[in-house]
Design a protein around this nucleic acid. Sequence first.
DNA 1: TGGAAAACTGAAAATCTTTCGCATCTTGTC
DNA 2: GACAAGATGCGAAAGATTTTCAGTTTTCCA
Lengths: 138, 138
Amino acid sequence: MENEQIKQAGLKVTAPRIKILGILERSGKRHMSAEDVYKELLSQDEEIGLATVYRVLTQFEGAGLVCRRHFESGQSVFELNNGEHHDHLVCIKCGAIVEFLDPTIETRQKRIAAEHHFKIEDHSLVVYGLCPNCQGTR
Amino acid sequence: MENEQIKQAGLKVTAPRIKILGILERSGKRHMSAEDVYKELLSQDEEIGLATVYRVLTQFEGAGLVCRRHFESGQSVFELNNGEHHDHLVCIKCGAIVEFLDPTIETRQKRIAAEHHFKIEDHSLVVYGLCPNCQGTR
DNA sequence: TGGAAAACTGAAAATCTTTCGCATCTTGTC
DNA sequence: GACAAGATGCGAAAGATTTTCAGTTTTCCA
Ligand SMILES: [Mn+2]
Ligand SMILES: [Mn+2]
Ligand SMILES: [Zn+2]
Ligand SMILES: [Zn+2]
Protein backbone atom coordinates (compact mmCIF):
# COMPACT_ATOMS: atom_id res chain seq x y z
CA MET A 1 0.00 0.00 0.00
CA GLU A 2 0.94 3.65 0.16
CA ASN A 3 3.25 3.23 3.14
CA GLU A 4 5.57 1.02 1.17
CA GLN A 5 5.80 3.29 -1.84
CA ILE A 6 6.54 6.27 0.37
CA LYS A 7 9.20 4.39 2.27
CA GLN A 8 10.79 3.08 -0.90
CA ALA A 9 10.84 6.61 -2.22
CA GLY A 10 13.10 7.45 0.69
CA LEU A 11 10.56 9.56 2.51
CA LYS A 12 9.28 9.20 6.03
CA VAL A 13 5.85 7.70 6.28
CA THR A 14 3.57 10.41 7.60
CA ALA A 15 -0.18 10.90 7.65
CA PRO A 16 -0.27 13.70 5.05
CA ARG A 17 1.83 11.71 2.60
CA ILE A 18 -0.26 8.59 2.96
CA LYS A 19 -3.45 10.56 2.51
CA ILE A 20 -2.27 12.52 -0.49
CA LEU A 21 -0.86 9.50 -2.29
CA GLY A 22 -4.14 7.72 -1.62
CA ILE A 23 -6.08 10.57 -3.18
CA LEU A 24 -3.91 10.53 -6.28
CA GLU A 25 -4.48 6.81 -6.58
CA ARG A 26 -8.18 6.73 -5.96
CA SER A 27 -9.72 10.10 -6.76
CA GLY A 28 -10.84 9.35 -10.29
CA LYS A 29 -9.11 12.37 -11.79
CA ARG A 30 -5.76 11.45 -13.20
CA HIS A 31 -4.48 15.01 -13.45
CA MET A 32 -4.89 17.09 -10.30
CA SER A 33 -3.69 20.51 -9.21
CA ALA A 34 -2.46 21.08 -5.66
CA GLU A 35 -5.71 22.91 -5.08
CA ASP A 36 -7.71 19.92 -6.32
CA VAL A 37 -5.89 17.66 -3.89
CA TYR A 38 -6.40 20.15 -1.09
CA LYS A 39 -10.13 20.38 -1.75
CA GLU A 40 -10.40 16.63 -1.77
CA LEU A 41 -8.64 16.53 1.61
CA LEU A 42 -11.02 19.15 2.96
CA SER A 43 -13.99 17.14 1.80
CA GLN A 44 -12.59 14.26 3.78
CA ASP A 45 -12.19 16.44 6.87
CA GLU A 46 -8.45 16.11 6.84
CA GLU A 47 -6.48 18.81 8.61
CA ILE A 48 -3.72 19.23 6.09
CA GLY A 49 -2.58 22.67 4.98
CA LEU A 50 -2.22 23.74 1.39
CA ALA A 51 1.47 24.41 1.96
CA THR A 52 1.89 20.81 2.99
CA VAL A 53 0.10 19.65 -0.13
CA TYR A 54 2.53 21.63 -2.27
CA ARG A 55 5.46 20.37 -0.24
CA VAL A 56 4.41 16.75 -0.47
CA LEU A 57 3.63 16.89 -4.18
CA THR A 58 7.04 18.44 -4.83
CA GLN A 59 8.70 15.72 -2.76
CA PHE A 60 6.75 13.06 -4.61
CA GLU A 61 7.92 14.59 -7.83
CA GLY A 62 11.52 14.54 -6.68
CA ALA A 63 11.11 10.94 -5.64
CA GLY A 64 9.63 10.01 -8.99
CA LEU A 65 6.23 9.09 -7.62
CA VAL A 66 4.41 11.76 -9.59
CA CYS A 67 4.95 13.90 -12.66
CA ARG A 68 4.27 17.62 -12.69
CA ARG A 69 2.73 19.11 -15.83
CA HIS A 70 2.56 22.72 -16.90
CA PHE A 71 -0.41 23.16 -19.18
CA GLU A 72 -1.22 26.80 -19.90
CA SER A 73 -3.64 27.15 -17.02
CA GLY A 74 -1.44 29.03 -14.63
CA GLN A 75 -1.23 26.17 -12.18
CA SER A 76 0.71 22.93 -12.20
CA VAL A 77 -1.11 19.63 -12.36
CA PHE A 78 0.21 16.38 -11.01
CA GLU A 79 -0.35 12.80 -12.02
CA LEU A 80 0.87 9.48 -10.72
CA ASN A 81 4.02 8.39 -12.51
CA ASN A 82 3.32 5.06 -14.10
CA GLY A 83 6.81 4.83 -15.48
CA GLU A 84 5.83 5.41 -19.07
CA HIS A 85 6.30 8.78 -20.68
CA HIS A 86 3.38 10.25 -22.60
CA ASP A 87 2.17 13.53 -24.02
CA HIS A 88 -1.17 15.31 -23.85
CA LEU A 89 -4.06 16.54 -25.89
CA VAL A 90 -5.93 19.18 -23.87
CA CYS A 91 -9.37 20.64 -24.58
CA ILE A 92 -9.15 24.42 -24.24
CA LYS A 93 -12.81 24.63 -23.38
CA CYS A 94 -13.65 21.90 -20.88
CA GLY A 95 -10.16 20.84 -19.87
CA ALA A 96 -10.59 17.24 -20.96
CA ILE A 97 -7.27 15.47 -21.36
CA VAL A 98 -6.28 12.62 -23.63
CA GLU A 99 -2.88 11.00 -23.22
CA PHE A 100 -0.92 9.70 -26.16
CA LEU A 101 2.48 8.45 -27.12
CA ASP A 102 3.78 8.68 -30.66
CA PRO A 103 7.01 6.80 -31.31
CA THR A 104 7.65 8.75 -34.48
CA ILE A 105 7.51 12.06 -32.66
CA GLU A 106 9.72 10.73 -29.89
CA THR A 107 12.27 9.58 -32.43
CA ARG A 108 12.26 12.83 -34.35
CA GLN A 109 12.80 14.79 -31.16
CA LYS A 110 15.85 12.76 -30.35
CA ARG A 111 17.19 13.26 -33.82
CA ILE A 112 16.64 17.00 -33.69
CA ALA A 113 18.36 17.28 -30.32
CA ALA A 114 21.27 15.25 -31.68
CA GLU A 115 21.55 17.41 -34.75
CA HIS A 116 22.00 20.42 -32.53
CA HIS A 117 24.34 18.52 -30.21
CA PHE A 118 21.97 18.88 -27.31
CA LYS A 119 21.94 16.19 -24.65
CA ILE A 120 18.20 15.74 -24.33
CA GLU A 121 16.91 15.63 -20.79
CA ASP A 122 13.17 15.93 -21.09
CA HIS A 123 10.46 17.35 -23.24
CA SER A 124 6.94 18.63 -23.12
CA LEU A 125 4.45 18.32 -25.93
CA VAL A 126 0.93 19.56 -25.45
CA VAL A 127 -1.60 19.83 -28.24
CA TYR A 128 -4.47 22.20 -27.50
CA GLY A 129 -7.84 21.99 -29.20
CA LEU A 130 -11.51 21.32 -28.83
CA CYS A 131 -12.64 17.89 -27.77
CA PRO A 132 -15.54 16.23 -29.62
CA ASN A 133 -18.03 17.42 -27.00
CA CYS A 134 -16.95 21.01 -27.17
CA GLN A 135 -16.90 21.47 -30.94
CA GLY A 136 -20.56 22.16 -31.49
CA THR A 137 -21.10 24.88 -28.92
CA ARG A 138 -19.37 28.19 -28.67
CA MET B 1 9.76 51.37 -39.10
CA GLU B 2 8.01 50.54 -35.86
CA ASN B 3 5.37 53.24 -36.24
CA GLU B 4 3.97 51.58 -39.31
CA GLN B 5 3.77 48.11 -37.83
CA ILE B 6 2.03 49.44 -34.76
CA LYS B 7 -0.44 51.40 -36.83
CA GLN B 8 -1.13 48.46 -39.09
CA ALA B 9 -1.74 46.35 -36.03
CA GLY B 10 -4.59 48.71 -35.22
CA LEU B 11 -2.91 50.25 -32.20
CA LYS B 12 -2.20 53.88 -31.47
CA VAL B 13 1.39 54.85 -32.00
CA THR B 14 2.74 55.75 -28.59
CA ALA B 15 6.22 56.16 -27.19
CA PRO B 16 6.16 52.98 -25.04
CA ARG B 17 4.98 50.89 -27.96
CA ILE B 18 7.60 52.22 -30.33
CA LYS B 19 10.33 51.74 -27.76
CA ILE B 20 9.29 48.20 -26.81
CA LEU B 21 8.92 47.04 -30.39
CA GLY B 22 12.31 48.53 -31.14
CA ILE B 23 13.86 46.60 -28.29
CA LEU B 24 12.34 43.35 -29.48
CA GLU B 25 13.73 44.03 -32.94
CA ARG B 26 17.18 45.15 -31.98
CA SER B 27 18.12 43.81 -28.58
CA GLY B 28 20.00 40.75 -29.72
CA LYS B 29 17.97 38.36 -27.60
CA ARG B 30 15.19 36.83 -29.61
CA HIS B 31 13.27 35.54 -26.61
CA MET B 32 12.68 38.10 -23.86
CA SER B 33 10.62 38.16 -20.70
CA ALA B 34 8.65 41.26 -19.73
CA GLU B 35 11.27 41.82 -17.08
CA ASP B 36 14.05 41.62 -19.67
CA VAL B 37 12.32 44.24 -21.77
CA TYR B 38 11.76 46.40 -18.71
CA LYS B 39 15.41 46.22 -17.69
CA GLU B 40 16.46 47.14 -21.18
CA LEU B 41 14.16 50.16 -21.02
CA LEU B 42 15.63 51.17 -17.67
CA SER B 43 19.13 50.92 -19.06
CA GLN B 44 18.03 53.33 -21.77
CA ASP B 45 16.60 55.71 -19.17
CA GLU B 46 13.08 55.28 -20.42
CA GLU B 47 10.29 56.09 -17.99
CA ILE B 48 8.06 53.15 -18.76
CA GLY B 49 6.44 51.13 -16.02
CA LEU B 50 6.54 47.36 -15.80
CA ALA B 51 2.75 47.24 -15.95
CA THR B 52 2.89 49.04 -19.26
CA VAL B 53 5.43 46.57 -20.56
CA TYR B 54 3.10 43.70 -19.73
CA ARG B 55 0.17 45.56 -21.20
CA VAL B 56 1.96 46.39 -24.43
CA LEU B 57 3.35 42.90 -24.88
CA THR B 58 -0.12 41.46 -24.38
CA GLN B 59 -1.52 43.90 -26.93
CA PHE B 60 1.23 43.02 -29.37
CA GLU B 61 0.38 39.39 -28.87
CA GLY B 62 -3.28 40.04 -29.55
CA ALA B 63 -2.33 41.96 -32.67
CA GLY B 64 -0.12 39.13 -33.86
CA LEU B 65 3.11 41.11 -33.61
CA VAL B 66 4.66 38.81 -31.03
CA CYS B 67 4.27 35.27 -29.73
CA ARG B 68 4.19 34.43 -26.05
CA ARG B 69 5.97 31.25 -24.91
CA HIS B 70 5.70 29.36 -21.67
CA PHE B 71 8.92 27.53 -21.01
CA GLU B 72 9.21 26.07 -17.53
CA SER B 73 10.92 29.09 -16.07
CA GLY B 74 7.94 30.55 -14.32
CA GLN B 75 7.78 33.57 -16.54
CA SER B 76 6.49 34.10 -20.06
CA VAL B 77 8.90 35.00 -22.80
CA PHE B 78 8.01 36.90 -25.93
CA GLU B 79 9.47 36.88 -29.39
CA LEU B 80 8.72 38.74 -32.56
CA ASN B 81 6.25 36.84 -34.71
CA ASN B 82 7.87 36.17 -38.04
CA GLY B 83 4.81 34.41 -39.31
CA GLU B 84 6.27 30.94 -39.27
CA HIS B 85 5.48 28.53 -36.50
CA HIS B 86 8.39 26.79 -34.82
CA ASP B 87 9.27 24.82 -31.71
CA HIS B 88 12.13 25.10 -29.25
CA LEU B 89 15.12 23.32 -27.85
CA VAL B 90 16.03 24.90 -24.50
CA CYS B 91 19.23 24.44 -22.49
CA ILE B 92 18.27 23.80 -18.87
CA LYS B 93 21.57 25.17 -17.69
CA CYS B 94 22.34 28.36 -19.58
CA GLY B 95 18.97 29.01 -21.16
CA ALA B 96 20.25 28.92 -24.72
CA ILE B 97 17.46 28.40 -27.22
CA VAL B 98 17.48 26.78 -30.63
CA GLU B 99 14.43 27.00 -32.83
CA PHE B 100 13.37 24.20 -35.12
CA LEU B 101 10.51 23.04 -37.25
CA ASP B 102 9.94 19.41 -38.05
CA PRO B 103 7.29 18.70 -40.69
CA THR B 104 7.03 15.08 -39.62
CA ILE B 105 6.21 16.05 -36.06
CA GLU B 106 3.71 18.64 -37.22
CA THR B 107 1.99 16.07 -39.38
CA ARG B 108 1.88 13.45 -36.67
CA GLN B 109 0.34 15.91 -34.26
CA LYS B 110 -2.44 16.65 -36.67
CA ARG B 111 -3.06 12.97 -37.19
CA ILE B 112 -3.17 12.28 -33.48
CA ALA B 113 -5.63 15.10 -32.89
CA ALA B 114 -7.78 13.80 -35.71
CA GLU B 115 -7.72 10.29 -34.34
CA HIS B 116 -9.15 11.58 -31.10
CA HIS B 117 -11.60 13.83 -32.92
CA PHE B 118 -10.01 16.94 -31.48
CA LYS B 119 -10.13 20.13 -33.50
CA ILE B 120 -6.53 21.21 -33.08
CA GLU B 121 -6.05 24.84 -32.17
CA ASP B 122 -2.44 25.15 -31.15
CA HIS B 123 0.42 23.21 -29.67
CA SER B 124 3.56 23.62 -27.65
CA LEU B 125 6.63 21.45 -28.01
CA VAL B 126 9.71 22.18 -25.98
CA VAL B 127 12.67 19.88 -25.73
CA TYR B 128 14.86 20.47 -22.68
CA GLY B 129 18.47 19.44 -22.50
CA LEU B 130 22.07 20.57 -22.25
CA CYS B 131 23.53 22.61 -25.05
CA PRO B 132 27.00 21.74 -26.38
CA ASN B 133 28.63 24.34 -24.14
CA CYS B 134 26.99 23.11 -20.97
CA GLN B 135 27.64 19.41 -21.33
CA GLY B 136 31.16 19.32 -19.98
CA THR B 137 30.67 21.16 -16.73
CA ARG B 138 28.41 20.31 -13.88
C1' DT C 1 11.25 0.48 25.28
C1' DG C 2 13.29 5.35 25.95
C1' DG C 3 14.73 9.36 24.11
C1' DA C 4 17.23 12.33 21.24
C1' DA C 5 18.21 13.67 16.55
C1' DA C 6 16.35 14.41 12.25
C1' DA C 7 12.57 15.16 9.58
C1' DC C 8 8.03 16.90 9.18
C1' DT C 9 3.93 19.93 9.85
C1' DG C 10 0.38 23.86 9.76
C1' DA C 11 -0.21 28.68 9.67
C1' DA C 12 1.27 32.82 8.42
C1' DA C 13 4.31 35.62 6.02
C1' DA C 14 7.01 36.20 2.02
C1' DT C 15 7.97 35.73 -3.09
C1' DC C 16 7.24 36.16 -7.75
C1' DT C 17 4.90 37.20 -11.73
C1' DT C 18 1.13 39.36 -13.67
C1' DT C 19 -3.02 42.19 -13.58
C1' DC C 20 -6.13 46.08 -11.82
C1' DG C 21 -7.93 50.64 -10.52
C1' DC C 22 -7.62 55.17 -11.49
C1' DA C 23 -6.13 59.82 -11.87
C1' DT C 24 -3.54 61.84 -15.35
C1' DC C 25 -1.54 62.23 -20.11
C1' DT C 26 -1.57 61.44 -25.50
C1' DT C 27 -3.10 60.49 -29.83
C1' DG C 28 -5.98 60.75 -33.84
C1' DT C 29 -9.52 63.49 -35.90
C1' DC C 30 -12.30 67.57 -37.10
C1' DG D 1 -6.42 73.78 -31.24
C1' DA D 2 -10.33 71.06 -28.91
C1' DC D 3 -12.10 66.56 -27.57
C1' DA D 4 -13.25 61.85 -26.97
C1' DA D 5 -11.18 57.55 -27.01
C1' DG D 6 -7.52 55.27 -25.72
C1' DA D 7 -2.90 54.87 -23.05
C1' DT D 8 0.18 55.41 -19.28
C1' DG D 9 2.34 55.16 -14.63
C1' DC D 10 1.89 54.04 -10.12
C1' DG D 11 0.72 51.51 -6.25
C1' DA D 12 -2.23 48.01 -4.71
C1' DA D 13 -4.04 43.43 -5.46
C1' DA D 14 -4.19 38.92 -7.15
C1' DG D 15 -3.00 34.09 -7.74
C1' DA D 16 0.34 30.40 -7.30
C1' DT D 17 3.94 28.62 -4.83
C1' DT D 18 7.62 28.80 -1.38
C1' DT D 19 9.73 29.95 2.95
C1' DT D 20 9.88 30.58 7.79
C1' DC D 21 9.22 29.14 12.34
C1' DA D 22 7.97 26.95 16.45
C1' DG D 23 5.83 23.00 17.82
C1' DT D 24 5.12 17.75 16.41
C1' DT D 25 6.12 13.19 14.79
C1' DT D 26 8.94 9.59 12.98
C1' DT D 27 13.18 7.00 13.07
C1' DC D 28 16.70 4.74 14.83
C1' DC D 29 19.62 2.70 18.05
C1' DA D 30 21.26 1.94 22.74
MN1 LIG E 1 -0.85 12.46 -18.22
MN1 LIG F 1 11.17 31.09 -30.87
ZN1 LIG G 1 -13.88 19.87 -24.23
ZN1 LIG H 1 23.61 25.70 -22.14
